[in-house]
Design a protein around this nucleic acid. Structure first.
Length: 260
DNA sequence: ATGACGCGGTGACCGCGA
């Protein structure tokens, strides 16, 4: 089974590219982030024509997460247990969608950006990741299905995961508390699954400043697996070709290969 | 070649992304 994650940066602007990629990539499940639309606006027909069912969670033009699957989708959850909200008063955002596809529990996650270290959004980001860790504790028990947490984590786990650590000094995505929040996932039994197969590669390049042709990117799109999921991983790849050309998302798709 | 930001919604700008 092949499972991919991709921050598509608006599914309505990108649906032709995304479905064309699906049709030639032999991917069974695609987790998408930043669909930027409400459920009724999601273009399901092109996915169905390609042979995929789609579940989507979108409340407005911000955020939005989806899962397309050609191996079934069941037990859909539009948030993880304890997921914090944002705003005054705090309200749930469309940043997490869980579904069981081909026997694997897949979570499509769009972690809050954080904006700046001094911004309340940064506090929200850390709280969101802490709550996810608490929920994930329950997903490593022997009777839980193999679980994958995939998406745009908005954290570069190591210095080598950004093109210039000095550029990011004092900025979000690289701070110790953010990195510790990912380590905490490992402490409850999850393992990052893509790095071993994609060393030195990035998943995101800013649209500005010629970041992509200059190879100035970040590794922020990651896949964490529970022990029973990690045991089945036999490969991973970042499809950098998809960042090229007019109409590309600023993120590349990340593909995970399982021996199931 | 991989090339100088791009979404959506609103209203001819702005919020947001990272």
């Amino acid at each position: 089974m092949r499972i991919a994650t991709w921050n598509v940066n608006s599914i309505r602007a990108r649906v032709d590219r995304v479905t064309a990629w699906l049709e030639r990539s032999d991917v069974d499940v695609l987790a998408m982030q930043e669909t930027k639309c409400k459920d009724a606006q999601f273009p399901v027909l092109p996915f169905e024509a390609a042979g995929y069912e789609v579940v989507h969670h979108g409340l407005n033009q911000w955020n939005g997460v989806a899962i397309a699957s050609r191996v079934g989708v069941s037990d859909v959850e539009p948030a993880f247990p304890g997921q914090p909200g944002w705003g005054e008063p705090a309200a749930a955002e469309a940043r997490a969608l869980g579904a069981t596809c081909g026997g694997v529990r897949v979570w499509s996650l769009y972690v809050p950006n954080g904006r700046e270290v001094a911004d309340p959004h940064y506090v929200y980001k850390l709280g969101w990741l802490a709550a996810l860790r608490d929920a994930a504790k329950e997903w490593t028990s022997p009777d839980a299905p193999p679980t994958l947490l995939v998406g745009d984590w908005n954290v570069a786990p190591r210095d080598e995961d950004v093109w210039d650590p000095a550029f990011f000094e004092g900025r979000t995505h690289v701070t110790a508390p953010e990195r510790d929040a990912l380590t905490a996932l490992e402490d409850v039994g999850f393992t990052e699954l893509t790095r071993a197969y994609t060393e030195g590669q990035f998943t995101y390049w800013d649209y500005t400043q010629l970041r992509f042709p200059k190879r100035q990117g970040m590794r922020i799109d990651l896949a964490y697996g529970s022990p029973s999921a990690a045991a089945h991983v036999v490969g991973a790849a970042i499809d950098r070709e998809e960042r090229k050309g007019k109409g590309a998302s600023d993120h590349a798709p990340v593909v995970l290969e399982l021996d199931t």
